[in-house]
Design a protein around this nucleic acid. Structure first.
Lengths: 350, 350
DNA sequence: TTGAAAGCGCTAACAA
DNA sequence: TTGTTAGCGCTTTCAA
């Protein structure tokens, strides 16, 4: 008896149990649970709902998935050298955006991080458990290209963020990115309007595509204005605070450009510290801009002029596009580029 | 013929297909795929592995899960008012930690965010698709308590972060938190050692448990030293930068305490801006401390003395504890509290 | 060490 | 509007 009671508590409740209690067939319960209200008379539905509540029935997803051969689940694989891969504000916002969008559609989001050189062994790639995959790549161009091709070869819908080169025969792939070029352009125009005569662009040695685009945008702004502006690019060994600080301090000991454009907000923040250290006041003696404003720009002194990233929106769009792809059988677009906007701060205010 | 080829490409490869190609039974393939190497002769295994590679076979998770009634999956439900719920550095580190730990065990992590008042309707709670659940709660004490009880009633293993009160009859629950009290204590002792005579603790109106603990720790440090130190607590309507800035500016117009302890790093950063605005220099005229050092402390001017949060480790421990729970049938401990450490910055350096 | 049989819980397809 | 039948792809169980 005790044995039996324990079993009652432990054993999972099935559709059949609900059907028995409600006095209907399993199929009717299935229709209620799946929200196919048109197929079930109101009174029947209420009986079923009562039985579901009484038994605390929760559908076993794996059984639904197996039978319907849809997982109602998307996976996202994130390549990053930092074990706390979600700590990157760009990444965390993308993932939040896609997660929220999918939750609302009753989809699950499986999140997995990987080191760039372990990408190909990621367990999420080795089992078929998601209807589609997303990825954020990192590492050198060649490596990212290989990973992109591997994703395409899986033969399922794929969305990749912040990549630009589309592999051949990749119909079931959609690339989503923000307009980094435009961001560089906006900052360049802004600095020119402030009358700068030289710009120092600071980027990490390992420069990824977005940084390249930002740099190109900056150059384009200068070309566009036919302005006689010196532009110099220096590289820090990493995006690490101390590394950037030292490189910039060292560079500033030579002479003082009229503006520093950081490849990212964190680079700009470290550059600002370098200016402070060298006794160069911002914005009086030098202007500073960042890129991808999330929070840092608020906390720097002075507050930082930067480009606002639509990262959350990137994730949401990925959700939309994937859901449409799964419903309609193919992507409507294979490339989506979202606009950015400039956030003015005190660091260029004069 | 074209039809058939298309079908070949599209149709999913099953265990049976692999078995046929390898000339063995499905059971043998299953044993190879599941890594049960002791049960399969080396030569057989190699044949099977060749067939798997040739067919690009990936096991259908839902079928495995259904048959074995284990999902190899953990869900995490995060209650937060911010849609970009992963943008919080504490949360993003917890999730990264658990994700990495589980990936390595071939477990999946399903991530879902929810507004605090929608918690109970979260789709992750309405379907049985994970072997266990984690949660990060938010909102008022009563609400969080209700959510905790709801989680326990699901009848599956649950880990909840940063909660302290254990509901009755909750054997299958483990609470994991960092030692916020100790953090407050460390900061309090540090400030006392610097000879402060008054401390202003700044916290949000909506004060959650961790903040309470930090405050208690601060008070305990003072009690411990029998020091004649004034301590005053003020509340900002939110953790929002501008809100904190205004509240602190307003308070500083009255008089200047010898130290400000922010309930979080962001609060401390805003308080520092307020000091700057009021012409009060840090650390000469006032000391400032934060809490939960992730990145902000590096970028403030001067750099901030703060408590380093073991958030990533919290997540990793959750993974460990859950895996052990699933293997052994019960939690070994129902409460885990991880230590914190102090990070000294220039904001208290004198 | 390998294989055969059975069935996990659900829903597609069809029948009534 | 409801019910019946069959089977999704895998692993448990047992037999050889």
């Amino acid at each position: 008896m005790a044995e039996k009671m324990k079993a009652d508590v432990t054993k999972k409740v099935t559709l059949g149990d609900v059907a028995r209690v409600a006095g209907v067939s399993p199929m009717t319960v299935s229709n209620v649970v799946s929200g196919k209200h048109a197929l079930v008379k109101l009174g029947t539905r209420q009986k079923v709902e009562a039985a579901i509540a009484q038994l605390k029935y929760r559908p076993i997803q794996s059984a639904r998935n197996l039978r319907s051969s849809r997982a109602n689940s998307i996976g996202i694989l994130i390549s990053d050298t930092n074990p706390a891969f979600l700590a990157d504000p760009f990444i965390s916002r993308i993932v939040s955006g896609i997660s929220n969008y999918l939750s609302q559609l009753n989809f699950t989001l499986d999140v997995q991080g990987t080191l760039p050189d372990r990408f190909e062994d990621a367990s999420i790639l080795r089992k078929a458990s998601n209807d589609a995959l997303c990825a954020i790549l990192s590492g050198h161009q060649r490596l990212r290209r290989r990973h992109l091709e591997q994703l395409v070869r899986l033969g399922q819908p794929v969305v990749v963020f912040q990549e630009h080169t589309m592999p051949k025969d990749a119909e079931d792939l959609c690339l989503i990115s923000q307009n980094d070029f435009e961001g560089g352009l906006l900052l360049g125009r802004h600095l020119i309007s402030k009358g700068v005569s030289s710009i120092l662009f600071v980027k990490p040695t390992r420069n990824w595509v977005a940084i390249e685009q930002r740099e190109k945008g900056l150059f384009a702004a200068i070309a566009e204005q036919r302005a006689k502006i010196q532009i110099e690019v220096i590289m820090a060994p990493s995006e690490n605070f101390i590394d950037v600080l030292n490189v910039v301090k060292n560079r500033l000991s030579r002479d003082i450009p009229s503006a520093i454009a950081g490849g990212t907000d964190l680079i700009a923040a470290a550059a600002m510290k370098a200016c402070e250290y060298c006794g160069i006041s911002i914005p009086e003696s030098i202007l500073v801009t960042g890129f991808n404003g999330f929070d840092v720009w608020r906390y720097t002194t002075p507050s930082l002029t930067t480009i606002m990233s639509p990262a959350y929106e990137l994730g949401r769009r990925a959700g939309e596009v994937l859901y449409a792809r799964l419903s309609e059988g193919q992507f409507q677009e294979n490339r989506i580029v979202l606009p950015v906007s400039m956030q003015l701060g005190a660091s260029t205010e004069r």
